[in-house]
Simulated scan of single mutants.
Amino acid sequence: MEEEIEKLFQKMLDPEESEAYYFADKLGQKADEKVKDRLIELVADEDWEKAYLACRALSKTPWNEESLDAIFKVIYDRKNKLKQGAFVQILEEFDLSQRFVDIFRVYLFGNFKASTLAKDYLDQVEFEISPRTIRKAEKHWNHYLNNPEDADSLAIKRMEVEPMLLEMKELFS
Results as ranks from 00 to 15, higher is better:
residue 148 P to A: 04
residue 5 I to T: 04
residue 122 L to G: 02
residue 114 A to T: 10
residue 2 E to H: 13
residue 22 Y to M: 06
residue 33 E to I: 10
residue 52 Y to P: 02
residue 149 E to G: 05
residue 101 V to T: 13
residue 70 A to W: 01
residue 53 L to S: 03
residue 101 V to F: 05
residue 155 A to S: 09
residue 39 L to C: 00
residue 7 K to A: 04
residue 165 L to N: 14
residue 113 K to V: 08
residue 128 E to F: 13
residue 127 F to L: 08
residue 32 D to E: 05
residue 9 F to A: 13
residue 78 R to A: 09
residue 149 E to P: 02
residue 117 L to V: 09
residue 120 D to M: 13
residue 146 N to Y: 12
residue 47 D to T: 01
residue 52 Y to F: 04
residue 85 G to E: 11
residue 100 F to Y: 15
residue 147 N to D: 08
residue 71 I to E: 04
residue 20 A to I: 00
residue 157 K to R: 06
residue 115 S to P: 11
residue 119 K to E: 15
residue 157 K to W: 02
residue 138 E to N: 14
residue 154 L to I: 05
residue 2 E to R: 15
residue 107 Y to F: 11
residue 107 Y to S: 11
residue 146 N to L: 15
residue 32 D to K: 14
residue 124 Q to C: 09
residue 39 L to T: 00
residue 124 Q to S: 14
residue 73 K to R: 05
residue 12 M to H: 09
residue 100 F to S: 06
residue 140 H to I: 08
residue 11 K to F: 15
residue 116 T to W: 15
residue 51 A to S: 07
residue 43 V to H: 03
residue 49 E to F: 15
residue 42 L to R: 01
residue 30 K to L: 08
residue 88 V to F: 00
residue 27 L to F: 11
residue 88 V to A: 01
residue 48 W to E: 01
residue 100 F to V: 10
residue 148 P to Y: 08
residue 122 L to Y: 09
residue 157 K to F: 06
residue 164 M to W: 11
residue 158 R to V: 02
residue 145 L to T: 00
residue 129 I to H: 06
residue 132 R to I: 14
residue 138 E to W: 15
residue 53 L to T: 03
residue 137 A to G: 06
residue 24 A to C: 07
residue 80 N to C: 07
residue 29 Q to Y: 09
residue 3 E to H: 12
residue 134 I to W: 13
residue 169 K to V: 09
residue 75 I to H: 00
residue 138 E to A: 11
residue 153 S to G: 03
residue 159 M to G: 08
residue 80 N to I: 04
residue 82 L to R: 07
residue 116 T to I: 09
residue 158 R to F: 11
residue 27 L to A: 13
residue 97 S to F: 13
residue 143 H to I: 07
residue 41 E to K: 00
residue 146 N to T: 09
residue 66 E to Q: 05
residue 80 N to M: 06
residue 15 P to L: 05
residue 138 E to C: 12
residue 4 E to D: 07
residue 114 A to P: 06
residue 34 K to G: 05
residue 83 K to H: 10
residue 23 F to E: 02
residue 85 G to W: 10
residue 130 S to D: 00
residue 81 K to F: 12
residue 53 L to E: 03
residue 168 M to H: 02
residue 171 L to H: 10
residue 119 K to V: 10
residue 43 V to L: 05
residue 40 I to V: 00
residue 141 W to I: 04
residue 151 A to K: 13
residue 74 V to C: 00
residue 163 P to Y: 08
residue 61 T to L: 03
residue 79 K to V: 08
residue 172 F to V: 01
residue 51 A to L: 01
residue 122 L to W: 06
residue 117 L to T: 10
residue 104 F to C: 12
residue 21 Y to Q: 12
residue 81 K to R: 09
residue 111 N to A: 07
residue 77 D to E: 10
residue 11 K to D: 14
residue 73 K to C: 05
residue 50 K to C: 02
